[in-house]
């Protein structure tokens, strides 16, 4: 019983670490790579994207998930909401941004990604 309880507590600890404490470091840089953000299976792939500060940029999205939630991508800080047609690449234009981290997500925040501007 002792072992099971310990296992349970360890599992809880792992959940806290995995979902909250762990900070992903990897981000894809649009300056060095040609990327299309795939919207499928509950995530944006890649979901951490680096772009240059102070310059207009654009991101290319390709939605493969039929669920209605995935159909719109929002960049709330910039008042951008763009509809993503199914299986068609869509370019979302972004204004020139000051350095910082900005979230982009679907209206319900089931899909979520980070835009790192530096």
């Amino acid at each position: 019983m002792m072992i099971i309880n310990l296992l349970g507590l360890v599992l809880i600890g792992l959940i806290i670490w995995w979902f909250w404490l762990y900070k992903p470091a990897k981000a894809v840089d649009t300056r060095s790579e040609n990327i299309t953000i795939i919207v499928n299976d509950g995530i944006y792939q890649p979901s951490r994207i680096k772009v240059e500060a102070g310059k207009k940029t654009s991101l290319q999205f390709l939605r493969k998930d039929g669920s209605p939630c995935a159909a719109t991508v929002l960049f709330p800080e910039f008042e951008i909401s763009e509809e993503l047609p199914l299986n068609t690449t869509r370019v979302v234009d972004l204004p020139s941004m000051s350095p910082g981290e900005y979230l982009f997500h679907c209206p319900m925040k089931m899909y979520s990604g980070t835009l790192i501007v530096d």
Binding site: F19, P24, D41, I43, S47, M110
Partner: peptide, 19 residues
């Protein structure tokens, strides 16, 4: 299948959702 794939992909991405 879509629940399990979605769950796994978001798990790998350190997120969790309804799936």
């Amino acid at each position: 299948k879509h629940f399990y794939i979605g769950a796994w992909k978001s798990f790998v991405n350190h997120t969790a959702n309804m799936d």
